[in-house]
């Protein structure tokens, strides 16, 4: 094998077969779009996790809604489940338009535009987030093998989005970011439903949407109360409510 290095076959032959065993990605085009949107949803989830400004958070949340509703529509088209169109439109109107609008109004009223305080520093939060993604991949591995839907690989992402939403609620002090974390968590659940089973029945979905809306209103009312009581939205202040001090 002492041959000349350059006089051998041109580049590109025999891509080291045998060293890699994962399957090639000649996926269906819809599955590709689906997984790309899943990646974007994950990206926005991480964006919310690290975003310090309240407005930035709301915009990212709205974008997540856009990707979610697009994904729902595409899944509905591929799977032939037309009720998914309705939930897509519902997502668009509720999570992209209405809720961000309410939050905007809330922030303007309460005049809280400064940067959001975090409990854990941001690089550390990112690392925990990455660990959560790996964990949810590990967790959903059995489901992935059972299912035969084209969207099955996005289940891990959906679970990760749920967990990141919860992480966001844990690491942030501000009440507004907590509600956004809650809504992101709900987004993850919705995403899981579309990718694992091609969506929940329409009735359930309508119910959930209504719940979210009502939750948002209740949160809003609570904000006002917290704000008037403590003159801040930092939930650390709630620690003062405990007995024994």
């Amino acid at each position: 094998m002492e041959g000349n290095f350059w006089s051998l076959a041109p580049w590109g032959r025999g891509l080291g077969e045998g060293y890699f065993q994962y399957s090639d990605m000649n996926l269906h085009i819809a599955a590709q779009i689906n997984s790309f949107l899943a990646a974007l949803v994950l990206l926005t989830a991480f964006g919310m996790l690290v975003q310090k400004r309240v407005y930035g958070l709301i915009h990212l949340f709205a974008w997540q809604g856009v990707f979610l509703s697009l994904n729902t529509a595409i899944v509905g088209f591929v799977a032939g489940k037309h009720h998914l169109y309705i939930s897509s439109v519902l997502t668009l109107s509720l999570k992209v338009v209405l809720l961000p609008y309410i939050l905007h109004v809330l922030i303007n009223r309460l005049r809280i535009r400064k940067e959001v305080e975090t409990i854990v520093n941001i690089p550390m939060t990112m690392m925990i987030g990455i660990a959560l993604v790996i964990f949810s991949y590990h967790l959903t591995a059995p489901v992935r093998e059972l299912s035969n839907l084209v969207t099955r690989s996005t289940l891990a992402v959906a679970l990760a989005v749920v967990m990141i939403g919860l992480l966001m609620m844990i690491t942030r002090k501000h009440a507004v970011t907590q509600i956004i974390g809650f809504l992101a968590l709900e987004n993850g659940l919705f995403f899981a439903a579309t990718s694992a089973t091609y969506g929940m029945p329409l009735v359930v979905e309508l119910g959930v949407a209504l719940d979210v809306l009502i939750a948002a209103f209740i949160f809003g009312i609570f904000f006002f109360h917290i704000h008037t009581t403590f003159d801040t939205l930092d939930v650390d202040q709630m620690a003062r409510l405990k007995e024994g001090d």
């Binding site: 994962y22 990605m25 996926l27 997984s35 790309f36 899943a38 990646a39 994950l42 990206l43 991480f46 690290v50 941001i122 690089p123 990112m126 987030g129 990455i130 993604v133 790996i134 991949y137 690989s153 996005t154 891990a156 992402v157």
Partner: peptide, 23 residues
């Protein structure tokens, strides 16, 4: 810059993860 470069690391890692998870 730790946050800036941390996000770069995050992106790259997400790329690696999504290769295994999504592709």
């Amino acid at each position: 810059l730790t946050e800036f470069l941390g996000s770069a690391f995050l992106m790259a890692t997400l790329g690696m993860l999504s290769f295994f998870i999504l592709e």
